[in-house]
């Protein structure tokens, strides 16, 4: 009966070795990034101040604050959300509540994967061709936000679809059997029970949108503007592009400045993501069914 003992022990050893190897790989994946984040905090942290956040850049963007870029990012994200959230929810509702298992559904899913997979600079080209030139919006917040909206649409669709599909089918059937129309069922039962998941997706989209650079480069974001945008047809500065500009295009920028901008950008994105994750974890523990 114990003939196999030696073999077992050897197997256990091999198993242990692999386990450690994979653990080290995981750590090697994560640690460098954590070190980099730490460096950003050390070098950029001292930059963050009220003046930095709420004042205009000065002396050719080598001094002063980043207020117009911060505000511009907020504008861009807001307009993009207005466009993509209703559309994304509609698309998710279609896929979750209406679509059958047929070729159209497969094509839609493939299109969503592609929308997420097309390079961001190609989205920028599309934005230029469609919104800036064809629809005549010019380089404006509107054109840039619509480009961002289309690019990040898959984020909303996927998150919303998942939370809609998590609502038990029995609820729908019970509601239908009472004579509710599909829309009444969606409005009264499905959406109220998926709303927190949808919100999680929207927060995630905010984080994605805020960090994007390439799609807004030629569609609405400007290197430098001495004034704030007054309407969606004006162009604007943006935090992400500002980081690119001051770290590559402008001579004589003090070293700490781009670190500060990078830190701010990453903080916005990570905080948004963390909120979204925390929200999700909290909800998982608080299901009504």
């Amino acid at each position: 009966m114990f003939v196999a003992t030696d073999l077992n022990r050897q197997n256990d050893k091999i198993q242990q070795r692999w386990r450690i190897l994979f653990m080290v790989m995981t750590l090697l994946l994560i640690l460098p990034v954590l070190i980099i984040l730490l460096l950003l905090i050390i070098r950029g942290g001292p930059m963050i101040s009220w003046t930095f956040l709420f004042e205009f850049p000065e002396q050719g963007m080598t001094a002063g604050g980043i207020f117009p870029a911060l505000l511009g990012t907020i504008f861009l994200v807001s307009v993009a959300l207005i466009a993509s959230v209703p559309l994304g929810i509609a698309a998710a509702l279609y896929l979750s509540e209406y679509a059958g298992d047929n070729w159209l559904t497969r094509v839609i899913n493939l299109a969503i994967i592609n929308l997420a997979g097309v390079p961001s600079i190609v989205h920028a080209l599309f934005g230029v061709g469609a919104f800036v030139i064809f629809f005549g919006f010019g380089t404006s917040i509107l054109a840039a936000s619509l480009t961002l909206a289309i690019m990040t649409l898959p984020v909303v669709i996927v998150a919303t679809k998942e939370s809609l599909q998590a609502v038990p089918q029995a609820f729908r059937e019970a509601c239908w059997s009472m004579g509710a129309t599909r829309w009444q069922t969606i409005r009264r039962i499905v959406i109220p029970n998926a709303v927190s998941g949808i919100l999680t997706g929207i927060i995630l989209e905010v984080s994605r949108t805020a960090g994007e650079t390439a799609p807004i480069m030629f569609t609405g974001a400007a290197f430098f503007l001495p004034f704030l945008p007054e309407s969606v047809f004006d162009s604007t500065m943006a935090l992400s592009l500002h980081l690119y500009v001051i770290s590559t295009q402008v001579p004589g920028v003090p070293e700490a400045l781009p670190y500060g901008v990078a830190l701010l950008l990453i903080a916005i994105v990570l905080v948004m993501n963390a909120i979204s994750i925390a929200f999700r974890v909290y909800l998982r523990g608080k299901k009504k069914w």
Partner: peptide, 20 residues
């Protein structure tokens, strides 16, 4: 068809208390 369904009450094998 919704009017039809509203005239027919259904009780399922497993009780479905809606999350309301």
């Amino acid at each position: 068809v919704y009017a039809l369904r509203s005239r027919v009450g259904v009780v399922f094998p497993l009780p479905v208390g809606l999350p309301l």
